[in-house]
Amino acid sequence: MLAQGQPIPCRRRAFEEAIAFATLANESVGESLSHALIHKLGFEAPQLQVPMQLPSGRFVRPDYFWPNVRVVGEFDGAHKYTKSMQVSGKEPSRVVYEEKLREDGIRSLGHRVCRWTWADLMNPERLARILSNAGVPRSSGVRRFGD
Results as ranks from 00 to 15, higher is better:
Arg11Ala: 14
Arg12Lys: 14
Arg13Cys: 00
Glu16Leu: 15
Ile19Arg: 13
Ile19Val: 15
Phe21Thr: 05
Ala22Tyr: 12
Ala22Ser: 15
Thr23Phe: 01
Ala25Asn: 08
Ala25Met: 07
Glu27Gly: 04
Glu27Cys: 02
Ser28Met: 08
Ser28Cys: 05
Glu31Ile: 11
Leu33Lys: 13
Leu37Asn: 02
Ile38Phe: 01
Ile38Thr: 00
Lys40Val: 04
Gly42His: 09
Pro46Asn: 05
Pro46Ala: 03
Gln47Met: 15
Leu48Met: 09
Leu48Lys: 08
Leu48Val: 01
Gln49Lys: 13
Val50Glu: 00
Val50Cys: 08
Met52Gly: 01
Gln53Tyr: 06
Gln53Thr: 15
Ser56Gly: 10
Ser56Gln: 10
Arg61Gln: 15
Arg61Cys: 13
Asp63Asn: 12
Phe65Lys: 03
Trp66Arg: 10
Asn68Ala: 15
Asn68Ser: 15
Asn68Met: 13
Asn68His: 10
Asn68Glu: 15
Val69His: 09
Arg70Trp: 09
Arg70Asp: 01
Val71Ser: 00
Val71Arg: 03
Gly73Ile: 07
Gly73Tyr: 04
Gly73Thr: 13
Glu74Cys: 03
Phe75Lys: 02
Gly77Val: 01
His79Ala: 13
His79Lys: 10
His79Arg: 11
His79Asn: 13
His79Pro: 02
His79Trp: 12
Tyr81Leu: 09
Tyr81His: 09
Ser84Asn: 05
Gln86Thr: 09
Gln86His: 06
Gln86Val: 05
Val87Cys: 00
Gly89Cys: 05
Lys90Thr: 00
Pro92Arg: 05
Ser93Lys: 08
Arg94Asp: 01
Glu99His: 11
Glu99Phe: 02
Glu99Lys: 05
Glu99Met: 08
Glu103Asp: 15
Asp104Gln: 12
Asp104Thr: 08
Gly105Tyr: 08
Ile106Phe: 07
Ile106Trp: 04
Ser108Asn: 11
Leu109Phe: 06
Arg112Trp: 03
Cys114Arg: 07
Arg115Ile: 00
Trp118Gly: 00
Trp118Asn: 02
Trp118Tyr: 14
Asp120Phe: 07
Met122Asn: 05
Met122Arg: 12
Asn123Lys: 15
Glu125Tyr: 06
Glu125Trp: 04
Arg129Met: 10
Arg129Trp: 11
Arg129Tyr: 11
Arg129Leu: 12
Ile130Pro: 00
Ile130Arg: 08
Leu131Val: 00
Ser132Cys: 11
Ser132Phe: 07
Ala134Gly: 11
Ala134Asp: 10
Pro137Leu: 14
Pro137Asp: 12
Ser139Cys: 09
Ser140His: 14
Gly141Phe: 13
Val142His: 11
Val142Gln: 11
Gly146Tyr: 04
